[in-house]
Design a protein around this nucleic acid. Structure first.
Lengths: 227, 227
DNA sequence: GGTTCTAGAACC
DNA sequence: GGTTCTAGAACC
């Protein structure tokens, strides 16, 4: 009958109480041995409880039972008129069984759940979540603004590029015309110079002068990577 | 002694119970009349309660008292040894006073707080918050990506503009040189033509030909809004 | 971990 | 709104 020292006092006292034949008229095992009965609540509270605990209140006894996971067994309501004004009170726990005191150590007192901590943690969590949401929200607004700025800048850049390309194209045409004009001019000069033997534009080998060359060189005027 | 119909049955029954001289040995007003005493808890529960309520449990009675805001009055522990094993039970409510039944209507049953709803609402709130956070988060990622794309595009555009401006500048220089060349050419021709009286480049009024005009017209080649 | 007062929750 | 069982919280 020695219980492990890990079994709380309440459980060993309860076990003793239920086992004790001297008090079996007030508290005892049920027929099946898987629950116990308090036969006279009032006498049990006033006569038995103070012998084992620091009080004589049924409420305190029941509070402890619930604290250890005991459940009240509801009395099956037989169709009969309520014969006894106060039926026995019956409590049950899966590890509180007649003849199996080795199971007692499996009964655990419900942790006080560190309720204050728990409550604080939930509050802190909520506070953190709210702070995060607000932070993310303001960040998003800032990014939105930056995005709008970039978008406007981008549009401006596209317009400028379009402009520049157009200008480039116009310049190309102009350069082409200028060169055509020069060619015409030179041809005319050539005709004239046929008599004078004094060429103006052409080199001695008859090719175009060097500084005009880039005009027709696409690699210089319109690099592929920019088209 | 008729109470407003808005006063719950429990309060009128309790008032009657405490007033009734027939039960004054079990329940009565305190000396000061601002609280009531249950002198013998056990007899009160078994003999009086069932006459007024559907039970004979002190616990149920106390639950109702607490539900209506009554508070237990702790017995001042006089230095004496506990004379009576069970002192009287005393309860008090600011609106439950001897001779002032008109105050009863101020006593309100604590609302069941719509606990299931409340619990559900908190859960729903948390779920909503989480959904919002996730939505905002994914949105943020999408915007981040778009921002990066725009930024890259922007850099590309700046490079292209730089290129185009450089090209434009080169073309301008080329055009300038071409025109200088033409001017030189024309001057040479002019000298030659002084003898022939046959101008090639100049119009009859001595101005530059029309199709060259744009070359020096900044409004056409380099619109101010693009510089 | 034990005791007490009060409240939550389910069911009626 | 009433009754019952169980749990929270404070205090010891």
């Amino acid at each position: 009958m020695k219980h492990s020292s890990s079994v709380p006092a309440f459980l060993t006292k309860l076990w003793t109480l239920v086992e004790d034949a001297d008090t079996s008229e007030l508290i005892c095992w049920s027929q099946e041995g898987n629950s116990f009965l308090v036969l006279d609540e009032q006498r049990f509270a006033k006569e038995i409880l103070p012998k084992f605990f620091k009080h004589n209140n049924m409420a305190s006894f029941i509070r402890q039972l619930n604290m250890y996971g005991f459940r009240k067994v509801m009395q099956i309501d037989t169709g009969m008129v309520k014969q006894e004004r106060d039926g026995p009170v019956e409590f049950q726990h899966p590890y509180f069984k007649h003849g199996q005191d080795d199971l007692l150590e499996n009964i655990k007192r419900k942790v006080s759940n560190s309720r204050p901590e728990d409550s604080k943690l939930r509050q802190e969590d909520l506070t953190k979540i709210l702070a995060t949401v607000q932070s993310v929200h303001s960040k998003q607004e800032s990014i939105d603004a930056r995005l709008a700025t970039l978008k406007r800048e981008n549009e401006g850049l596209w317009r400028e590029i379009s402009d520049l390309r157009q200008k480039h194209s116009h310049q190309q045409q102009l350069i082409k015309k200028l060169i055509q004009f020069i060619v015409t001019l030179v041809q005319n000069n050539r005709i004239l110079n046929l008599k004078r033997k004094r060429p103006i534009l052409m080199n001695s080998n008859g090719k175009k002068p060097k500084y005009i060359h880039p005009v027709y060189d696409d690699k210089v005027c319109v690099p592929p990577e920019c088209v």
